[in-house]
Design a protein around this nucleic acid. Sequence first.
RNA 1: GGAGAGAUGCCUGAGUGGCCGAAAGGAACAGUUUGCUAAACUGUCGUACUCGCAAGGGUACCGAGGGUUCGAAUCCCUCUCUCUCCGCCA
Length: 427
Amino acid sequence: MLQLSYIRDNKDAVLTGLQKRHFTNAEAIIEQVLALDQHRRDTQRDLDDTLAQSNAKAKEIGVLMKSGDKAAAEAAKAETTNLKVHSKALEDALRLAEQQLQDILVTIPNIPHSSVPAGRTADDNEVVLEHGKKPTLYDGAQPHWELIKKYGVNGPIIDFELGVKIAGAGFPVYRGKGARIQRALINFFLDEAMAAGYMEVQPPIVVNEESGFGTGQLPDKEGQMYYVPEDKLYLIPTAEVPITNLYRDVIVPENQLPICNVGYTPCFRREAGSWGAHVRGLNRLHQFDKVEIVRIEKPENSYTALENMSQHVQSLLQKLELPYRVLRLCGGDMGFTSALTYDMEVWSAAQERWLEVSSVSNFETYQANRLKLRSKMEGKMQLLHTLNGSALALPRILASILENNQTPNGIRVPAVLVPYCGFEMID
RNA sequence: GGAGAGAUGCCUGAGUGGCCGAAAGGAACAGUUUGCUAAACUGUCGUACUCGCAAGGGUACCGAGGGUUCGAAUCCCUCUCUCUCCGCCA
């Protein structure tokens, strides 16, 4: 959520930013916000004045009572009636104005960073860099959804049909070496993050409504999350939600900054309406595993931190020997809450497609404002910047390892994972 | 699931109708003392909104929401959450 004071003082910048996102009706909406804000402040001032008068009267009555002047006290009481009626009305008006403002503010996305390219769709994203050589596969190479059936003991190493039996489509069962390589990846990612200075956390994988609001999933994206009505809990779509919300309503002592957390969790996404032919196999799932890095930074350091996170993610891909590219998302393709997002995509050799495996974003104060996440810096209370990134999401990494490393004799496990999973080949 | 207790500032904890935005202690921060550390002493020490160039002022907030009252942390109602005991159970 943008800060009102920011919109007030930087109307033009806000409008240009929203334009970059192709946010419709920006001008009208901002005008409405400013008008409502003015009205809210006027109302607040009136209310405060009225309440100040009431307080003065009450005090006066107290003194009169004590001095035993009953008649004067009663007379003063009579004078409060009007004030009461008046303040009641103003209170209602204030609450309404605040609610209306809030309702609009939550629909306004974050302002893109100046480096965010213009553009509407994924095709307009800027390719920042490409790294590694796309492998040439042997004749007869297969996509991962075929490969998984080729290996494994008494069944595929990743069994989609078994998952259907247990839960439904998009909930695969990992078996044998399929399960072990998953676990190896998780441990590898966690160890790498810790070596890079992140502290591991294991958060709950369900969250309440406040948490969903804090990071910006609610209101709006409720359709994407699994919900448990009995307990009013959402299954997390990413560890970003619980980990960032650890710092909701927190005033962080300046000397504890920056905060760098890493967590492994399963993630759950309903993916309503996004099913299609190109999401076969591991490309899109309802449940998947992900290691997420989250940082809380001083405003002046957040973009350095973002680059740093991007480097960290890239180093993982390099160690896994996967060809990848880095995209800077354009205004139209960026997430609602982000100011700048890098997507990392790995090359999936048999599908001959880039697969998104990480998304690293700086939210600046957008989430912090909702979270009330602040620090007292230079004597002033200030909102902090939040950032997060996948480091990494498992299924597509696994898909490209399977596809890129396939040989006629089996699938070669990246060297860096061998100590973690204890075998060199899936065969 | 059953029974009970409670929710106050960074923490502990006092406060049962006006003198309470809230005692006291601790923590933290700044300073004095000191060869260093420690101790002692002094001072500072909530947040939000709002008015003001500023100094400074106003308002709200003692789990949340409502009510009683001229006046509520304090009385009443509803809700939420936490803790303890019992039951069940990983």
